[in-house]
Design a protein around this nucleic acid. Sequence first.
DNA 1: TTTCGACCAATATTGTATTTTGGTCGAAAT
DNA 2: ATTTCGACCAAAATACAATATTGGTCGAAA
Lengths: 190, 190
Amino acid sequence: MKKKDMISASILAAAETLFQKWGIRKTTMEDIAQEAGKAKSSLYYYFKDKEAVLEAVATAQAERIIRIVREEVEKKKTAREKLLTYVYTSFRETRRAITLYEIARGEMRATPGVLRKVIDKYHALEEEAVEEILRFGKKRKEFRIIGRHDISDTSQAIVTIMRSLIISLFIESDDKKTIDQIIALLSEGL
Amino acid sequence: MKKKDMISASILAAAETLFQKWGIRKTTMEDIAQEAGKAKSSLYYYFKDKEAVLEAVATAQAERIIRIVREEVEKKKTAREKLLTYVYTSFRETRRAITLYEIARGEMRATPGVLRKVIDKYHALEEEAVEEILRFGKKRKEFRIIGRHDISDTSQAIVTIMRSLIISLFIESDDKKTIDQIIALLSEGL
DNA sequence: TTTCGACCAATATTGTATTTTGGTCGAAAT
DNA sequence: ATTTCGACCAAAATACAATATTGGTCGAAA
């Protein structure tokens, strides 16, 4: 049981490397096998098909992002700082994870199905993380409005904004000043 | 001088109809000419090339959206209502103007250049409109923060959010509740 | 339990013939 | 002088067939 996991992991590592380098579509099972030092047919002993490999890589990346973001957020004292850090770190790490980035925009149309599941789960985790920050801000009485509005709806709105921004700011330039301004708007209101 | 403008307009009308129906790329100059009841080569008497036709159509649509949005916004009394109306109307009309919508996402990569100009100008007009609302809200003392922050930066941030939302909400479902929540966030803060 | 070569159907790629398209020009019509 | 259009061309898009890759299976070997 231990050995199988090790090799699975090495295959995933190989796949992730190649996905980053050439993109999902241009990476073949043969490529992955070669990078992992295996025969192509051996991969099918560890993963059902290419989609399964993709799902595993995407899941691992999503979990990695969530973990890093939570670590960074935890270091900050105020809810406002936490929210700011959350957005920045999430941006940076999402961009770094090209696979997810590709998924988030164009290439997803070419590879739907399984990835929808991964992304939905990822967004759910994101909402949880934001909710935590909001609850923290409420406890500290840093945020005024949250008593009146549902905390879950609010974090959903914030994640929606973020998701949209990530998609479009990937295309355009990532204007740091604009992001700061948006955070200020969110936390202080007009 | 009058007749030339009339025919120009009829060509643009034909072009717009076909752009909506078949998309920019699938609409040929021959199609437009036929729809306008002219010979293809006649179009070149009125417009330099296909790009010029496209630019004129896009500009007209942008101006139309701005006009409608301003009309709707003017009817509202409070700055908050104005802002809400602005977002809703802008969403609705942008979606209705499929040409601009196509431009806003995928197809723009296939038709850059001239359209970049039109869109930039359109965004500038949008920012102006939002700025007006913000100034109005400041005068009524409806918005607190605006003294401290630059009003131009703030409206730029709002337009950025809106633009992102439009792009991504076009793809996903346009959850009205989410938009309401976002507006609440913007106007009240956390 | 794990690996892999041989093999296959389906997909993707490539090279080429053919058509379509954007755009020009000069002659005719108004 | 203004406006229209058919004939024409080079470049781009399309269609199609030949070819090569790719994802995936299977049974035999390690």
